[in-house]
Design a protein around this nucleic acid. Structure first.
Lengths: 224, 224
DNA sequence: ACATACATGTAATGCGTTACATGATTAC
DNA sequence: GTAATCATGTAACGCATTACATGTATGT
């Protein structure tokens, strides 16, 4: 159960409330694992019942705030879960699925899909890079909280793996960006091929235009 | 509902049975969208009831085989679904999630996780590249089936987008491979840092000895 | 006064996984 | 005859999404 892993992992850095966890998952961390609050609160209660975490209830006037901290059993659970091999089941990616059916769409529609993909992952890269800089420069409060509770000799390990993990997200997002860019240039080529095919049909000679490589020629020709 | 998109998309290339669809999803196509047969059969029945597809029942002796083909309403549905903007909700990636907690693990455990990641995505790249070659050389039977039912003027579009989509999968898998390699080299450098730190500490004064990681040192030292 | 952020929950519904269940054909 | 492949389903359970529900503190 990865939700527990995510929650315990965040709580292990610093005790937090369900509300805090939800905020973090909504912002940066959600790009690794998401969950809505309707999943978070019951999961926390359940883990509390199982003795993995414990809530320290804080009251601000009438308002109740349950700040959870990880117990020893919780650390054991987290470590065990993290070390278990990942089960790689097939993907479920709507963007790539739709891309595999783009021949059904107009070039404008294809372009819109690729553009949306591009913008989304550009945003993600920006967010992750900000995080990476925060870690490298020591401005990350959550990292500092983690370092305080750790044996100094493990600091290098923590920082190295945090950076590695965030860089992984950046690398993947960059791959998506590159792909979307390639998609856009595919659309552009097809568009100019279409245009020249129409011209060719209007003119007398022009045989049925070729395929891929033709597109480059077409753009070159249209620039003349 | 993307499952419908995936099923209609495959059926639009060529009429098929639920069993065939399941096989394709298990093999290559599952790396874009997976579903077990327990999801496929009911979904097909439902779409048949809604008039999106129609089954031609074939009998081999006693055995019944329901070959579904896409009706006009199904094509409309598919086109509409494919053109809709993708809803990018947060990720849920166990591998990256675990990576973000690797400071809790031994270097051996980290290495094992990265290795598994590497092998998995290397396999995927191999599968996709085989598919790409099949398309480029015209050996893909499903592509040929699709081309037969299409206006020749759209052939270039189909091929271009198929290649683009498969290349997207390869690009992403390559990013995962690169990341895992970087992870492995992070492990390697931490390992040698650990080794030299222990040497440094063992010789002059032996301050308060570490905990977990110390065990490995002990074995290493005892081998000397 | 009103909006926004803080704070925590429950319920209904839908999607996905695993297990259960059955039987016919084909190749060895 | 027996194992593998073909072929189609149902059921139980768990995870995920969306909507419902409530109330407090704080800043403008």
């Amino acid at each position: 159960m990865s939700l527990r892993g995510a929650l315990l992992g965040l709580l292990s850095a610093e005790p937090m409330s369900g509300y805090d966890l939800n905020r973090i998952l909504d912002e940066t961390f959600g790009y690794v694992w998401t969950a809505p609050h309707s999943q978070i609160y019951p999961a926390l209660r359940q883990m509390e019942r199982e003795g993995l975490i414990q809530a320290d209830v804080q009251r601000t006037g009438e308002r109740e705030r349950r700040v959870y901290r990880v117990l020893d059993a919780g650390f054991d659970y987290l470590r065990k879960w993290a070390a278990e091999p990942v089960i790689y089941s097939g993907e479920r990616d709507a963007a790539h699925l739709k891309a595999s059916m783009m021949h059904l769409l107009s070039l404008d529609e294809c372009e819109a899909l690729f553009w949306a993909h591009l913008s989304y992952f550009r945003q993600r890269v920006a967010i992750w890079e900000t995080r990476i800089e925060a870690i490298e420069s020591g401005r990350s409060t959550i990292l500092r909280a983690r370092l305080k509770t750790m044996d100094p000799k493990d600091h290098a390990k923590l920082i190295a793996f945090k950076l590695c993990s965030y860089e992984g997200s950046v690398m993947r997002a960059r791959a998506e960006i590159e792909w979307a860019e390639r998609g856009l240039s595919t659309v552009a080529s097809l568009r100019s091929a279409e245009a020249s095919a129409e011209l060719g049909e209007a003119e007398p000679s022009a045989t049925r235009a070729g395929r891929r490589e033709m597109t480059k020629t077409a753009t070159a020709v249209s620039k003349r």
